[in-house]
C-alpha cells in the first residue's frame, strides 16, 4: 500500500482518477462535480443567521437555496479526503505563508491573509458570475463539451495568467 503514503502521484493518474470519479457521479447522483455553488449557499446560510428568513426571498437564493446539499457535502469531503491523504504521506502541516509568496512578498502572515481574502472575494464573485469554477466548468463542463464551460475555462486561464505575471513579474 505504498501508493497511499506517497507524497505525489503522476498528474495523469490523478486526472484519470477524477475522470472515472465523474462517471460515477453521473450514474449514482445524476450530477457533475462542482464546488462554487456550495460557497454561495454557505453565504446565504450565514446571512440568514443575521437577517432571518427574508434572505430566502432573494432572487439568487431562490435559485440556489441556502441549505446543505450533495455539492455542499462534496466540499466537506474534499477537506477530509485531502487531510487523510496529507496525513498518510506526512505532508500535513499548519502553515500561513506559501514559500513562493514569501520569496517575493515576505514571510508576514498578515499580508498574505489580506491578499488571500481579496483574491477570494474576486474568485467567489467571478465563479458565481460565470456560473461555475475550475471544477464545475473546468472539468465537468469541458467533459460534457459544454459551450459555456470551454469559454469560461479558457477565460479563467487568460485572466489568471495575466494577473499572475503582473503580481510576480511586475510587483514581485
Amino acid at each position: 500500500m505504498d501508493w497511499l503514503t506517497m507524497g505525489r502521484w503522476s498528474p495523469y493518474a490523478v486526472g484519470i482518477g477524477i475522470g472515472i470519479l465523474s462517471w460515477l457521479t453521473f450514474v449514482l447522483s445524476d450530477k457533475p462535480i462542482g464546488c462554487s455553488a456550495a460557497f454561495a449557499r454557505t453565504s446565504g446560510m450565514i446571512e440568514r443567521l443575521f437577517r432571518g428568513n427574508k434572505v430566502l426571498q432573494k432572487a439568487y437564493y431562490r435559485e440556489f437555496p441556502p441549505r446543505v446539499d450533495w455539492e455542499w457535502m462534496l466540499v466537506v469531503g474534499i477537506i477530509l479526503g485531502s487531510f487523510t491523504s496529507a496525513k498518510l504521506s506526512g505532508q500535513f502541516k499548519l502553515d500561513w505563508v506559501p514559500s513562493l509568496w514569501a520569496a517575493s512578498f515576505g514571510p508576514q502572515p498578515v499580508t498574505r491573509v489580506v491578499v488571500a481574502l481579496l483574491g477570494g472575494v474576486l474568485l467567489g464573485f467571478g465563479a458565481r458570475w460565470a456560473g461555475g469554477c475550475t471544477s464545475g466548468h473546468g472539468i465537468s463542463g469541458t467533459l460534457q463539451l459544454a459551450v459555456s464551460s470551454w469559454l469560461a475555462a479558457i477565460c479563467f486561464f487568460i485572466g489568471g495568467i495575466a494577473a499572475a505575471f503582473f503580481i510576480f513579474r511586475v510587483l514581485g
Binding site: L123, G124, G126, A127, W129, A130, G159, G160
Partner: peptide
C-alpha cells in the same frame, strides 16, 4: 456571463492562488 465572469475568476485565481475546489 462565461467570458466576463471567467476573466474576473482568473484575477481571483492568481491573487488567491487557489480555486474553490483546491
Amino acid at each position: 456571463a462565461s467570458a466576463v465572469g471567467g476573466l474576473i475568476f482568473g484575477l481571483g485565481f492568481a491573487t488567491l492562488g487557489y480555486c474553490p475546489g483546491t
